[in-house]
Simulated assay, not measured.
Amino acid sequence: MAWLWMSVGTAAAALLAVSYYFSERVLRIRTNKGEAVLASELGQGRLTREAVEALPKEELAIASPFGYSLYAWFLPSAAGETARTVVFVHGVTSSLHGMLKYAEPFRRRGFNALLYDHRRHGRSGGDFTSYGYYEKRDLAAVVDYAFERGGPSAVVGVFGESMGAATALQYAAEDDRPAFVVADCPYSDFREQLAHRLKVEYGLPPFPLLPLTSLWCKLRAGFRIGDASPMRGIAAVRAPILFVHGEADDYVPPAMSAALHARAAAPKALYLAPGAAHAQSWAQDRDAYERELDAFLRANGLLD
């Protein structure tokens, strides 16, 4: 009987160790420096160095409610002075540089662009990545800045990609001020996303690893995996939402955007980009992407 208890104890210890390792990978996921993200964007032809160097950027440090600074760029509209601003929220492992390609179409359409690095990303502070749970409060601070800078006539929209899109939706469920949200390839629920990746990458079921990993996240960082859930609050979002997702996305399934779109109560549109992989809808067909964007903005009175 003693050997049985020893075996059980060994298995339990191993499971705890493995789940702690996964919590470390979740909370401290590898991130890329802004220079590396920019180099990738340049290498893939999404930006040119001349255009980036010519940007009239203003570098900012916006205070997070958690006590660190959020590194940001403010880019004025190319069409002249305006109180209309779009806040851009990048994906996990990336930086504000990854959102520059999306900022330019808005600047041409008469919006300022405000881009920033997530907590623990780029040049911003912070200890853990929480997949929108804490990031939504950082986003709120950035949106506050945009409204303060724009004054009484300020109009502020939010554009997010991947984790940034999930963050934007979680934030918008708690704040009615944004004029619109563009959510490009969001996950609908972080637990479901991790379960999907466990199956794809390791061939593992979610139980018992995910509950134990979630417990470690709670003990170490104060949130459970299931707390990061755009689906939970999507019906409360009042801002018009444009959902974008690549039909060939095998990282975050496009069914997640379809499910969010189906449950959303706000004015909404869904663009499934043919043949596009994860976060590649704009790169796959820029003209089609901008047509969908124009139609959405016009439908909601934000573009002449």
Rank of each mutant, 00 (worst) to 15 (best):
E53V: 08
E53C: 05
A54F: 10
P56I: 01
P56Q: 05
P56Y: 07
P56E: 08
K57S: 11
E58S: 13
E58Q: 15
E59W: 05
E59L: 06
A61E: 14
I62M: 03
I62V: 14
G67Q: 00
A72W: 02
F74D: 08
L75F: 07
P76K: 12
S77P: 09
T82S: 14
T82D: 10
R84T: 02
T85E: 00
F88Q: 01
G91T: 06
V92N: 14
S94F: 10
S94P: 09
S94R: 10
S94L: 10
H97E: 15
G98P: 12
M99R: 08
M99T: 10
L100G: 01
K101M: 09
K101T: 08
A103Q: 00
P105Q: 01
F106C: 12
L115I: 01
Y116E: 09
D117G: 02
R119A: 13
R120Y: 12
G122Y: 01
G122W: 01
R123V: 00
S124L: 10
G125W: 11
G125Y: 11
S130P: 05
S130Q: 03
Y134S: 08
A140S: 13
A141G: 11
A141W: 13
V143R: 08
Y145E: 02
F147G: 02
E148A: 12
R149H: 03
G150C: 04
S153P: 07
G157V: 00
V158R: 01
M163P: 08
A165N: 15
A165T: 15
A166E: 06
T167L: 15
T167D: 13
A168D: 08
